[in-house]
């Protein structure tokens, strides 16, 4: 997006209302998250929200902008929630604080604040964290009903803030790799895909527990579609392309490439399709542009998941496509009616 604001930004109360609806739409996913993985996620969301608001206020002060109206627009909160949902809930407290502060200070305000940031701030924060702290970013809570020791809320809190686990427990006993990561590691060891998917971490659609959370985000996304906050182009193009590419690979060699449904319901695919790519500031303005943008993101996500060094590809795919937005916008802008093409 260039120097001028999108029309809706001229009325801060509207932005605030839209953002509030998006936050509401995240609630079913979050509720299911708490059910399967324990309440630790609520701690990260709270930490992220507080950091986001504090950083936002500090940056606005530094930039000599009015603090109150921008703080009330809820956009910083949305960034904070999206980041908190992308990182392991049991990560140490400073991880989410550093990540959120980076999102708001660097990815948002150094680029000129709301409306001017070319990159999705939450995804910038995620990229910074996964690159800088890969160890802390790979310890995910084991979902309910996997036979692992379950930590109580107090124990989880204690671990997040002090790094101390209750007597005799190792981090390995309460955490595990994500389904996507496990799949990748096992494929690396030359196990066939269908054999890997019989392990207890996997369920009928994708990963045990995480697939249900993905459904939660899908429901929230459908609510956003129904209330016309997002248009259908981005999610449909994203999920469609992901399905198509994964389907082609799966048909060609099912022992190496898992079914497209697995890709839909694992990692951040649903969150990405409805909540991340749909950020109006960092996505193209035209329908055609949105199609290209989302299809490109899906293709990159798939390639990173299958061939890349990182377990999930949504963040990097989104950032790479964010760079292309000005170009996509320039080529998909409808011709101005009545203007004759110049003859060179």
């Amino acid at each position: 997006m260039s120097a001028f604001f999108s029309p809706f930004i001229s009325k801060p109360d509207t932005v605030s209302a839209i953002m509030l609806k998006v936050l509401l739409a995240l609630l079913p996913g979050i509720a299911l998250y708490v059910w399967y993985f324990g309440p630790a996620i609520l701690v990260s969301i709270t930490l992220a929200s507080l950091t986001a608001l504090a950083t936002e206020a500090a940056m606005l002060k530094l930039r000599k902008r009015p603090v109150a109206p921008f703080l009330k627009d809820n956009s910083a909160l949305l960034t904070a929630w999206l980041l908190a949902l992308s990182i392991p809930p049991l990560a140490p407290w400073w991880l989410i604080v550093v990540g959120t502060a980076f999102c708001i200070a660097v990815a948002k305000h150094l680029y000129g604040g709301l409306g001017n940031n070319p990159f999705n701030p939450a995804m910038v924060g995620y990229a910074v964290l996964i690159v800088s702290f890969p160890v802390q970013m790979t310890h995910w809570v084991t979902p309910l009903g996997m036979g692992a020791t379950e930590l109580s809320f107090v124990q989880q809190l204690q671990y997040i803030f002090s790094g101390i686990l209750p007597g005799g427990l190792t981090l390995d006993a309460v955490t595990m790799a994500t389904p996507l990561d496990t799949l990748k590691t096992q494929l690396h060891l030359a196990h066939p895909a269908n054999e890997i998917l019989t392990q207890p971490i996997f369920s009928s659609l994708a990963g045990h527990g995480s697939e249900v959370v993905a459904i939660g985000f899908l429901i929230g996304g459908l609510y956003l579609l129904a209330s016309k906050i997002i248009s259908w182009h981005l999610p449909v193009a994203f999920l469609g392309t992901l399905f198509l590419v994964a389907g082609i690979f799966h048909l060609a060699d099912p022992s190496h490439y898992v079914a497209p449904v697995f890709h839909w319901f694992s990692g951040a695919a649903m969150l990405g399709a409805f909540f991340i790519l749909t950020d109006p500031i960092t996505s193209p303005t035209t329908h055609k542009g949105k199609f290209i943008f989302a299809a490109g993101a899906a293709l990159l996500t798939y390639l990173i998941r299958v061939y890349g060094a990182f377990p999930d590809g949504i963040a990097f795919a989104t950032l790479l496509m964010n760079i292309c937005v000005p170009l996509i916008d320039a080529y998909t802008q409808p011709k101005v009616f009545g203007k004759k093409e110049k003859k060179a």
């Binding site: 890969p134 160890v135 790979t138 310890h139 190792t170 981090l171 390995d172 955490t175 790799a177 590691t185 690396h188």
Partner: peptide, 16 residues
């Protein structure tokens, strides 16, 4: 590595 039943340590998250 110990995870596979051997005698060598490894760090969680990076076994390959």
């Amino acid at each position: 590595v110990k995870k596979d039943g051997g005698q060598f340590d490894y760090m969680a998250g990076a076994t390959i």
